[in-house]
């Protein structure tokens, strides 16, 4: 269930590398913890973000969670379809439920992220 080709954060974001850009979303584990997502507040394209800054907010009926920037860079594109269909994050967290694309400044930041196996261990450790 945890795609092998992605990198992960402790805040349950995933990152997919595509040349100079990365695609960012939240993991299946994160969406199942939140429950039905009712709203996503997206950043503006063109926004500069620093690693660990709040990038977006996802809301369910009884909770609001920040999505933190896994990497520093400039937001190049946001998934505007989430405005009308936020449930896409529940239905397809690694696919159509992606959140935004970021042009990465410092690629070495990628090294600090977890791979799939490490993330799987991490979830096991936190859900006990």
């Amino acid at each position: 269930m945890i795609p092998g080709e992605l990198k992960y954060t402790k805040e349950h974001e995933w990152v997919r590398m595509e040349e100079n850009e990365v695609v960012i979303g939240i993991t299946d584990h994160a969406q199942s913890q939140l429950g039905d997502i009712t709203f996503v507040e997206l950043p503006d394209a063109g926004k500069d973000v620093k690693q660990s800054d709040s990038l977006a907010t996802v809301e369910s009926v009884k909770a609001a969670s920040d999505i933190y920037a896994p990497l520093s860079g400039k937001v190049t594109e946001v998934n505007t379809s989430l405005q009308d269909t936020p449930e896409m994050i529940n239905q397809s967290p690694y696919g159509d439920g992606w959140v935004c694309r970021v042009d990465v400044g410092d690629k070495t930041e990628l090294d600090g992220l977890m791979d799939a196996a490490a993330y799987e261990e991490f979830i096991k450790g936190t859900s006990s």
């Binding site: 709203f39 809301e59 369910s60 009926v61 009884k62 909770a63 609001a64």
Partner: peptide, 12 residues
């Protein structure tokens, strides 16, 4: 839209 409110978002 209760996620705007103090009982959920506290200081935010």
């Amino acid at each position: 839209l209760q996620t705007r409110e103090q009982h959920i978002r506290r200081e935010k």
